[in-house]
């Protein structure tokens, strides 16, 4: 099996994409279905802990570039003032908390990478708290996300150094979009379409970490990518079909990634990383 999205959709058939992914994982690794689910459940708990530590207002990274921002964001949400509403707002706050936890050397779950680790947990945990999603459903949704991630990793890349940030935040948004579509009762094909819409929206996104550190713009992209995941899911749930086969969109991402110059693939030499003011600040900070 090559793990394309269309193969996952076929594998799920009339059943659920989550069950297909759990079964496949058990077969490939020799673990029992129960053990596979238990591992994902422990990852879910770890995601919750990462959010909590990321919301600490006193948190600071070694470079001083991040930490404490999620706490500000949370306050605005609690005041009911976030423009996008509470569900999306909470996803974004939690995504930022996770990304800041990561930047500050906290414990996180790579999803699919450490740099993009906030998007999927932010989305899933917000659905648990604001939309009555149970732990079991959340675990299922994580498997749907993982299956999508596998398709992208196999056909394109989930590495910023290889494919730019579209491969990291783009992949994470695609995984989260499919998970959301799943949680809202979408079919396996709709999950695949949601993933494709998310990638379309982030296609070409460059990897340009300031000072080579996973902080700026990474933390902020974790926030913004949540919005892409929600809109992608909303589109498919409205009955909108992706006009291009989802696997082709993944291949487009690969092609775009290959065409990106080295300066925009994690070298810290282009994009945000090349701005004169941040360079000067970094120098003064003796990184």
């Amino acid at each position: 099996m090559d793990f394309t999205l269309s193969e996952w959709v076929n594998l799920a058939g009339e059943g659920s994409l989550a069950d297909a992914a759990v079964k496949q994982q058990a077969e490939e690794t020799g673990m029992t279905v129960e053990a596979v689910r238990a591992t994902m459940h422990s990852h879910l708990c770890c995601m919750q802990e990462a959010v909590q530590s990321g919301l600490d207002e006193k948190l600071r990274s070694v470079s001083g570039l991040s930490g404490g921002q999620a706490a500000l964001f949370l306050k605005r949400m609690q005041e009911g003032k976030l423009l996008g509403g509470r569900l999306l707002g909470k996803a974004e706050v939690y995504a930022m908390a996770t990304a800041e936890c990561n930047a500050c050397m906290g414990k996180i779950v790579a999803a699919p990478t450490a740099g993009a680790c906030g998007i999927l947990p932010g989305t899933i945990l917000a659905m648990m708290e604001e939309s009555d999603v149970s732990e079991e459903q959340a675990v299922d949704a994580l498997f749907v996300a993982a299956a999508v991630g596998q398709s992208i990793a196999t056909q394109a890349s989930i590495s910023g150094a290889e494919g730019g940030c579209q491969a990291e935040c783009g992949s994470a948004a695609a995984m989260a979009a499919a998970a959301l579509a799943y949680l809202e009762g979408g079919t396996p094909q709709q999950c695949a379409d949601a993933a494709a819409f998310a990638i379309m929206n982030l296609l070409g996104l460059v990897c340009d970490p300031v000072g080579g550190l996973v902080e700026v713009p990474c933390v902020y992209r974790n926030v913004g990518s949540c919005g892409v995941a929600f809109t992608a899911a909303d589109m498919v749930l409205s009955g909108i079909r992706c006009p291009i086969a989802p696997d082709e969109v993944i291949l487009a991402m690969k092609e775009v990634g290959d065409a990106l110059p080295a300066s925009l693939r994690e070298t810290g030499d282009g994009g945000c990383a090349a701005c004169a003011s941040v360079r000067a600040r970094l120098k003064a900070n003796t990184l």
């Binding site: 099996m1 793990f3 992914a21 496949q24 994982q25 490939e28 690794t29 591992t39 994902m40 422990s42 990852h43 770890c46 990274s61 936890c101 990561n102 930047a103 500050c104 050397m105 906290g106 414990k107 996180i108 779950v109 790579a110 999803a111 699919p112 450490a114 740099g115 680790c117 999927l120 994580l142 498997f143 996300a145 993982a146 299956a147 991630g149 596998q150 990793a153 989930i158 995984m175 550190l213 996973v214 902080e215």
Partner: peptide
Amino acid sequence: MDLFDLIGPVMIGPS
């Protein structure tokens, strides 16, 4: 294939 390469590992950040 290991889906826990996509959601995982559990690790101390940032990279």
